[in-house]
Amino acid sequence: MKKTGFLFLALLTLITACNSGAKSEDKKEEKVEEKRIVSLNGSVTEIIYAVGSQKELIGVDVTSTYPAAAEKLTNLGHVRKLSVESLLALNPSHVVMLEDEVSPDLKSKLKQAKIELVTFKHPNSVDEAKSLVKEVAKWLGKAQEADEVVAKIDADIKGLAKLDKKPKVLFVYARGAGTLMVAGEKTPLEKMIVLAGGENAGKGFVDFKPLTSESVIAANPDVILMFTSGAQSLGPDGIFNVPGVSTTNAGKNKALIQMDGQLLSGFGPRVAEALTELNKEFKKIK
């Protein structure tokens, strides 16, 4: 009996060890390999952080300025001018970007290197911003986290103050005094202005057009809206020295709103934050 009992225990130990080994193998098979992501769009980068997948991010482009932690990653520069060799040196598993920013050269070299290229539609509205959040998060396996981000966007937009009077707002894009453009109808900037409670002063044309003294006088905005980088490129109070601006209501009152370019026009997870900031600035205009 003792010998039989010993054999039984030995057999049981062997079976347990085999099952344990099988479970260990199963766990190895179930383990999902982490991605090594290079993001070539600031809004996509923000979403990756917003849903908690930043550990998989190894490189970014020049528009990825938020959150601050993103600036500590390898910066590959502007998507249109980046060195594909520098990108490949990071040994990414995936490159994510907006579909209208993919160059044939980049696409070809990524394919040759067997690196997966993942693209998303360029967002130009709040609804498209929410869709982008959901699509990027789904790809990352973070659908639930996306729902939380979208819910906050909706809640923040509902909290925007209703203004008694809509200020006339002229968005001016600047890269020094030699490049001054104003935003017209059907532009993403017009959508932000209107949603925040203002009226776009750029009327009678679609897209962007060069700023002229005649056009700015005719528009007569109550306030001028600019990217912070654009305003700084003109120097202190530089926009008010542009011919025609001083005669407008905005010029007379030195009414200028400066906002971070990525925040204002990125249509990412902070789109409602941008609208809230703009809405508060509009409330100050007399």
Results as ranks from 00 to 15, higher is better:
Thr4Val: 15
Leu7Met: 10
Leu9Lys: 06
Ala10Cys: 14
Asn19Trp: 14
Glu25Met: 15
Asp26Gln: 15
Asp26Tyr: 13
Lys27Phe: 14
Lys27Asn: 15
Lys28Cys: 11
Lys28Asn: 15
Lys31Leu: 15
Val32Leu: 14
Glu33Leu: 10
Glu34Cys: 10
Arg36His: 15
Val38Gly: 04
Val38Glu: 06
Val38Ile: 15
Ser39Val: 10
Leu40Thr: 02
Leu40Lys: 02
Gly42Arg: 01
Gly42Ile: 03
Ile47Met: 03
Val51Arg: 00
Gly52Thr: 12
Leu57Arg: 07
Tyr66Met: 10
Ala68Glu: 09
Ala70Val: 07
Ala70Ile: 04
Thr74Ala: 14
Lys81Ile: 11
Lys81Glu: 15
Lys81Val: 11
Ser83Thr: 08
Glu85Lys: 12
Ser86His: 02
Ala89Thr: 10
Leu90His: 08
Asn91Leu: 12
Ser93Gln: 11
His94Trp: 06
His94Met: 08
Leu98Asn: 02
Val102Gln: 05
Pro104Gln: 07
Pro104Ser: 07
Asp105Val: 11
Asp105Gly: 05
Ser108Asp: 11
Lys111Gln: 14
Lys111His: 14
Ile115His: 00
Ile115Gly: 00
Glu116Thr: 13
Glu116Ala: 13
Leu117Tyr: 05
Leu117Gln: 06
Leu117Cys: 05
Phe120Asn: 12
Lys121Asp: 15
His122Thr: 11
Ser125Pro: 07
Ala129Trp: 00
Leu132Arg: 02
Val133Pro: 02
Leu140Val: 05
Gly141Met: 10
Lys142Pro: 06
Glu145His: 05
Glu145Arg: 03
Ala146Tyr: 02
Asp147Arg: 03
Glu148Gln: 12
Val149Ser: 00
Ala151Asp: 10
Asp154Thr: 11
Asp156Thr: 07
Asp156Ile: 04
Asp156Asn: 08
Gly159Ile: 10
Asp164Trp: 02
Lys166Ile: 08
Lys168Met: 12
Phe171Gln: 09
Arg175Gly: 04
Gly176Ala: 13
Met181Val: 11
Val182Tyr: 02
Gly184Ser: 14
Gly184Phe: 05
Thr187Asp: 12
Pro188Trp: 03
Lys191Asp: 01
Ile193Met: 08
Val194Phe: 06
Val194Met: 10
Val194Leu: 12
Ala196Lys: 00
Ala196Leu: 01
Ala196Pro: 00
Gly198Arg: 05
Asn200Val: 10
Asn200Glu: 07
Lys203Asn: 01
Lys203Met: 00
Val206Ser: 15
Phe208Tyr: 15
Phe208Ser: 15
Ala219His: 08
Pro221Ala: 15
Val223Ala: 01
Leu225Gln: 06
Met226Asp: 01
Ser229Asp: 07
Ser229Tyr: 05
Gly230Phe: 01
Ala231Asp: 03
Gln232Trp: 08
Leu234Ser: 09
Gly235Phe: 02
Asn241Leu: 14
Val242Ala: 09
Pro243Cys: 10
Pro243Gln: 10
Lys252Met: 07
Lys252Asn: 11
Lys254Phe: 02
Ala255Tyr: 04
Leu256His: 06
Met259Val: 03
Phe267Ser: 00
Gly268Ile: 00
Pro269Asp: 00
Ala272Gly: 05
Thr276Tyr: 00
Asn279Ser: 14
Lys280Thr: 12
Ile285Trp: 04
Ile285Val: 08
